[in-house]
């Protein structure tokens, strides 16, 4: 069996977002990381492989991006992915990303494909399910648990106010969220050294097409000043919420 993990390269979650000319992200000083949900997906994939007694042979990571995303890919290799693919294009939308991944892996027959439920930059929440559709395989979204036993996968899916435990036939794709793994792996020096020599295949894009165009950015309107209330006068707060904000 083999697992594919789709990873996206995003600004660190503490980044303060600024733009140049309203059209372009100001990249000065930004730290780039593996999208946090993708990192959890990779962590769980590694755990599954380690617990599979050899049944899961390989974990591949794939990223759609320019050469500048390679440090992020190397980090994924450093924590334990076996090899990597980078599709050399800066994708314009989720469809283009999904389509390029599908083109790159359609003949590889991965048994399981994992990816984060969304990326912390465009929040499109679309690449995973689009990829499943392009590959015509089963899928489940918002998965917070996945287990593998004798070729049968059971998954835990978050639903409103609870969870469902399901079985799902391979090949399938799961988009994962918090809970799938607890702590992301931190690369050790040995892993970092090994990552340098692990295969990273760069493929050129095919059938380039996008459905939507992102144009200009806007920053949210600044909030009005916070009205401070003395700690010994909570009745005043309740009055304001009742009479001014009219929310209780």
């Amino acid at each position: 069996m083999k697992i594919l993990v789709c990873i996206s390269n995003v600004p660190d979650t503490t980044t303060k977002i600024k733009f140049v000319n309203d059209y372009e992200l100001d990249k000065t000083g930004i730290q780039w990381i593996i999208n946090p949900w993708d990192e959890l997906a990779l962590t769980r994939a590694l755990e599954l492989k380690e617990a599979s007694a050899g049944a899961i042979k390989k974990i591949t990571v794939i990223n759609v991006g320019a050469a500048e995303t390679e440090p992020t890919i190397r980090k994924a290799l450093a924590v334990g992915a076996d090899d990597a693919i980078r599709v050399n294009i800066i994708a314009k939308d989720a469809y283009q990303t999904a389509k390029q991944i599908a083109e790159a892996v359609k003949d590889e027959n991965y048994d399981l494909i994992l990816t984060g439920v969304e990326s912390s930059d465009s929040n499109g929440m679309a690449v995973g399910e689009m990829l499943a559709e392009l590959l015509n395989i089963n899928s489940a979204a918002s998965i917070s648990g996945i287990n593998f036993d004798k070729s049968l996968f059971t998954i835990k899916r978050e639903i409103d106010g609870g969870t469902e435990l399901l079985t799902i036939k391979t090949p399938f794709l799961a988009t994962v969220q918090k809970g799938i793994a607890i702590n992301p792996r931190i690369p050790a020096m040995r892993g970092i050294m090994q990552a340098r020599t692990k295969p990273l295949k760069v493929v050129e894009p095919k059938n380039i097409y996008n459905y939507v165009e992102y144009t200009d950015y806007e920053l949210p309107k600044p909030k009005g000043k916070c009205k401070m209330i003395a700690a010994d006068n909570v009745t005043e707060l309740v009055n304001l919420l009742h009479n001014e904000a009219k929310v209780i």
């Binding site: 912390s120 930059d121 939507v212 992102y214 144009t215 200009d216 950015y217 806007e218 949210p220």
Partner: peptide, 14 residues
């Protein structure tokens, strides 16, 4: 986009 830190105008071509 950016988890509520900004808005983006999007044109749908299809």
């Amino acid at each position: 986009v950016y988890t509520g830190k900004a808005y983006n105008n999007v044109i749908v071509k299809t």
